[in-house]
């Protein structure tokens, strides 16, 4: 079933009078329970595309449909609501709130979703348990390793049962061992029916996915199915 449809998407920046096409006419369909990797050299538009899909950014032109809803005509409030309910973000730099415990970090999206305290705590601790952090719930980010921080971030991304999880170079700041541990979590999430898109420029990370989309200068130059053996 189709989850996301991008049609003729452009994102154009004007830098010092010069036009920069971060996305240059992108067409893309993503189905439920896909596991897709976006690859490409630095500056090719990977992050821009992720932000677009994640409703953090809006296109200069083009059509974007998410679960049949037209995202390109939504206002700030509607976009915030979609991000809150339907999308889970995982960033390269974790982006946890430094003063909050792991549990509280995971709880925050639920606060914005106006879910009651007890239910919130239950959901947040379940999410932390599912990423193997049951004994780190009350630690602050600076008391956790990089891999553990990224697992908190994943727990935060999936706590709202989103339709899609977006991860922009989630292993970029991790050593390869922690990186592969993180990828195993994504693998499991995918097996459980989640839709996952991740950005990476490492081939052995991209191999975890089922589909690889390659970008160059804001254009999709290759879209291939990964054959696993």
């Amino acid at each position: 079933m189709k989850l996301i449809g991008l049609k003729d998407i452009y994102k154009i920046y004007n830098v010092g009078g010069e036009e920069v096409r971060a996305l240059d006419g992108v067409d893309l369909k993503i189905n439920n329970n896909e596991y897709m990797a976006i690859m490409g050299p630095s500056g090719s538009g990977k992050s821009t595309m992720m932000n677009m899909i994640g409703c953090l950014d809006s296109p200069s032109s083009g059509l974007y449909e998410f679960e049949g809803e037209k995202v390109h005509i939504m206002d700030d409030g509607q976009l915030a609501s979609i991000r809150n309910r339907k999308i889970g973000f995982v960033f390269q730099t974790f982006n946890l709130l430094p003063k909050a415990s792991a549990l509280h970090n995971v709880e925050i999206p639920l606060v914005y979703a106006n879910i009651k305290k007890e239910k919130r705590l239950k959901m947040a601790s379940d999410a932390l348990i599912s990423v193997g952090l049951e004994d780190r719930m009350h630690h602050r980010p600076n008391e956790l390793s990089g891999g553990q921080r990224q697992r908190v971030a994943i727990a935060r991304a999936l706590v709202n049962n989103p339709s899609i999880i977006l991860a922009d170079e989630p292993t970029g700041n991790l050593d390869s061992k922690s990186g592969h541990e993180i990828m195993k979590i994504f693998d499991e999430l995918h097996r459980n029916g989640n839709t996952i898109i991740l950005v990476t420029h490492e081939d052995d990370i991209a191999k975890y996915s089922n589909r690889i989309v390659r970008l160059l200068d804001g254009k999709i130059v290759k879209d291939e199915i990964v054959v696993k053996n």
Binding site: G54, D76, G77, A80, S81, N84, N95, P109, Y112
Partner: peptide, 11 residues
């Protein structure tokens, strides 16, 4: 970060 995880402008 807060906006990315769903905070509206009003929040």
């Amino acid at each position: 970060v807060r906006k990315a995880i769903g905070a509206t402008n009003g929040m």
